[in-house]
Simulated assay, not measured.
Amino acid sequence: MRFIHTADWHLGRIFHGVHLTDDQAYILEQFIKLVEDVKPDAVLIAGDIYDRSVPPHEAVQLLDEVLYRIIMDCRVPVLIIAGNHDSSQRLGFGHRLLARQGLYITGQPDTAFAPVIIEDAHGPVYFCPVPYADPPVVRELLGLQDVQEHDRAMAALIGRWTSRVPPGARKVALAHAFVAGGEGSESERPLSIGGTDKVSAAHFQNFNYAALGHLHKSQSAGGEHIRYAGSLMKYSFSEAAHKKSVTLVEMDAAGDIRWEPFPLCPRRDVRCWDGYLSDLLAGPPDGAGKEDYIMVTLRDSGAILDVIGKLREVYPHVLHIERPYLTSGGDLRGPGGDHRRLSEMDLFSSFFRQVAGEELSPEQQKALAETVEHIYRQDGPVDQVAEAFRRDKGVRL
């Protein structure tokens, strides 16, 4: 038995204002080519097919095209479960009709708990699809009042599905969950607010393989046979160092598995660059990465006019800029006195100390004093402006 494990496509994703549908179509073309070359017995997609419960029509069209080519052209069945980003009811529409064509969608658990059975040369393999479901949904479905957290809900669901599998049979779990010990990233939406959203890896130990979704980094969780394939693409700058791939799994007659990652090459990578503006504008030494999605950490300390405009002349897809120098002061603090009785120099010195984490140098103090005086001289005689400012604001100059 050979199958491809993938997850977290997030079709319709918007990344820092950029619609990624074209990028997703580009990488899914490679995925279809891999299916054509490998000719697996099945494709497993472990949840978060869409990025939101009501996806844009471009995302729906893209999924329709990809599934048609895999199922009808490649003649490979596809198993899909809903993730926490998906609408289980919308995703599961028509699932009984679609199953006749080889598309097995489990949007939400039901009382049937019927595994999907796929045969190979050694007999049947039982696939147990466990879509994402909040504990109250599981509690109502199973009538178990002690199901209050995700771990207990997962235990109850796994128990019902495995009870439908003959003893000793080869079985594969397909689940969307946060398994304890897994490493998350910034782009994953929490499964629970105010409670624990993690489940134990022990629930999946008796499966020959557990195809997991939710965490965006490709990794094992509690055992080499319990794996996250990772997301289709990098969906946050915290994932810049990730190696995105899909996982090809081979299972022998005894149920022993071995897996191999197949990397996917995006149209534009996600990169984090750090440095001074002049160095960054000179471009990377090898010229690579200019067209990628980029976050810049800028080390310059002075004011720079239109930073993003300057950077986009060289890197057209700069999406985010951070300036640690301007935010190094820690927690917000007041000016250290009644602001109405502080001079412009005192007020600006307090502001500079807060955002820069250091005092104005003598040269900076002199430049500030000259600038303030120049502004006043443009508006009128200094003494008249100062007196008006003192009367209106109560500020001592």
Rank of each mutant, 00 (worst) to 15 (best):
D274G: 08
L191W: 09
E224H: 09
G302L: 08
F262Y: 14
G289W: 02
E250I: 03
V199G: 09
L232E: 01
R268Q: 14
L360N: 10
A156I: 01
R52W: 05
G309L: 08
E58N: 15
R90A: 13
L79K: 01
H85C: 11
M345L: 11
G230P: 06
A7K: 00
W259E: 06
I32M: 03
V246W: 00
L360D: 11
L342K: 04
L62K: 02
C74P: 00
Q384M: 09
L63M: 14
D41M: 14
D338I: 07
G12M: 02
V165Q: 08
G195R: 09
A356F: 13
L97C: 08
R75A: 13
G357V: 11
R390F: 09
A82R: 06
K243F: 07
G195D: 12
M1K: 01
S301K: 02
I80C: 10
Y276N: 14
P55T: 05
F348V: 14
S87Y: 07
E370T: 09
I80L: 15
V116F: 01
R75N: 12
V130H: 02
G17K: 07
A180E: 04
Q219C: 11
L248I: 13
S278A: 15
W9H: 05
V314D: 00
L79F: 07
R390S: 14
G213F: 02
P56R: 00
H320R: 15
Q354P: 06
G222V: 05
H150R: 05
D151C: 04
A241W: 00
R312Y: 01
P284G: 10
P77M: 02
Q89W: 12
N206S: 15
G255H: 10
F348M: 10
E119L: 08
L397H: 11
R13Q: 12
E358S: 12
E358W: 08
D151N: 14
A177H: 04
G17V: 01
A156H: 03
V18I: 12
Y132I: 13
A180N: 01
P284E: 11
S192L: 07
L215H: 06
